[in-house]
Design a protein around this nucleic acid. Sequence first.
DNA 1: CTGTTAGCGCTTTCAA
DNA 2: TTGAAAGCGCTAACAG
Lengths: 348, 348
Amino acid sequence: MIRKKPATLSDIAATIGVAPMTVSRVVNGTGYVSELTRERVMQAVAEMNYRPNGVARNLKRQKTETVGLVLGDISNPYSTEIANAVRESLSARGFNLFICISEHSAKEDIAAFDSLVDHNVDGIIVATRSNKEGDERLAGIADRNIPVVVVGRDFHHDQVDSIAADNFAGGFEATQHLIDLGHKRIAFIGASFINRGNLKRLQGYLAALTEHNLAVDERLITGRRETLSEIPGYSTEKIGYEGMKRLLSLPNRPTAVFARNDFTAVGAMTAIKEAGLSIPDDIAVVGFDDTPLAVHTLPPLTTVRQPMRLQGQLAAELLLKRIAEKDTVTTENRVLECELIVRQSTVA
Amino acid sequence: MIRKKPATLSDIAATIGVAPMTVSRVVNGTGYVSELTRERVMQAVAEMNYRPNGVARNLKRQKTETVGLVLGDISNPYSTEIANAVRESLSARGFNLFICISEHSAKEDIAAFDSLVDHNVDGIIVATRSNKEGDERLAGIADRNIPVVVVGRDFHHDQVDSIAADNFAGGFEATQHLIDLGHKRIAFIGASFINRGNLKRLQGYLAALTEHNLAVDERLITGRRETLSEIPGYSTEKIGYEGMKRLLSLPNRPTAVFARNDFTAVGAMTAIKEAGLSIPDDIAVVGFDDTPLAVHTLPPLTTVRQPMRLQGQLAAELLLKRIAEKDTVTTENRVLECELIVRQSTVA
DNA sequence: CTGTTAGCGCTTTCAA
DNA sequence: TTGAAAGCGCTAACAG
């Protein structure tokens, strides 16, 4: 069968013998149109299955009521919570959301930015991991006065707002909690050796140890020795499991572990239980994120809750503000507090 | 500060004194342009931070090299795997992907469809749960010859391809496995009472029981009695935990449970272990999906693997085919096999 | 109440 | 090798 092209405004205008403008008015509900004409137009619209061409409309109106969200990956609760919160906030204001995934590839980051810009989204929220090429392109976009907000990452540009949880403080607090419980050999699972400096949770851990005069033992810091080509995604159960195995084989094994996130913590717990050890008596475990999973582990997991929804909401709000007030906007850089949730994986 | 508008083709044409067409040729690398002119254009493009306006370009070209994916929710491995696979396949062919989330709301489904159509995506992949209004709108879109493929759900239209896992057979196989192990009181956790008929996994469970002349005990089928307003999302740990609690309080408790998905199974396992019972000796557990989690539960979870990536890949391929061959396309409805993965939650 | 004109930014087509 | 004209589908702005 031959596909026929969708009907246009002029098509229906022609068939009922009025000007395109009249049809436009009916379709948009703007301006005066006689009841009779309106009805005839409506009927033709229905019959010809007409839908306005948004691209043409956008070209004219110079806005799309659409914003883009770029995510490094979609398979982790952080991304999904952010996405949900952003979508909700935008939807309440009549904006649509297009989500792009970059799989932590600089090339895909750029492709995502470009395609969103090409579609004239009104603004972009970026929650990818920082990388040089991507950041450069993003700066170019911000330079062109397209509203941009970044979430959960650094980005320095005088036209770009940022929102992030205080991962450093969260890591500090988690570690401090373990220290307060009397632990002296505290491991960290899920370090990324590639951008260790950017991993604030690890930095918080290190700072807490230092502040309490505990020596940093590199053997207690496990993670993947990824190469540059395999940029790290979200740390998984597998990483936690394998990391814990390695820690358990140490001559002087840790009495507590702080895992980079809850999934990693769950993997570590599996390894601990498999070894016939008890949590928290033999080894205490702390996670990060307070995912829904955390209440359902055995024992329930002590973890650091970061305000994910709030990050998404704020990102949406700041972006909408930027979109609304095209000039004179002050740049905001918000850092949100985390909260330690103590459960039985550290305190019996 | 005042935001200046992004430079247009004419802007840079004007500044270096050539015709817009010449700039277009340079930017697109089409047609002959003298080396000198090319360089001057390139320089201006760089200096003025010019990027072609995709909307205008789309309007002219009548295609966007972009496809939309509509997801009911983003917080479950099914959605994320599909999305990843789709993205990968599309990216390999130079297409961009815009993902929309509808939160299982018919209104948002429609909003997502419309915004994608408005942006002139070349095609749409739909993986939402079916609902009347949404399906009607979708049919209208397919009627207008916009390529559409649905994944993991039903949709009947002579221009729409569909891909789905054989959830019925998967449910049947899981239940059969438990029956083969000698279980007679087998529970189902995570039923949805609202569209029970659509829940193929449950139907498979029922069919297996019937085929083996085992009575169906309604008390062994737990789930949420949701109202129409709270359309069910992905079944969670909580549902599994609470459902199992209820089953355990039964005078004649089940010796095996088939959970609607792995998360639900994990919740059930927690409840079983809390009750001091052993898995699989006291109660055997089967999940569905074979999420990464399944290997890391204690004991590892027997589950039904459905080919998620494959579903996404096929969806992308079929859509691209439809996009390429605008006419004479035969409609495909693929049902993919599931595979039972036996682990220690059913066989010690 | 309805129509005309013009143009959004780009590219196709034809001409120079 | 470059340019001019026309138009993609729609809508502001102004007439009538």
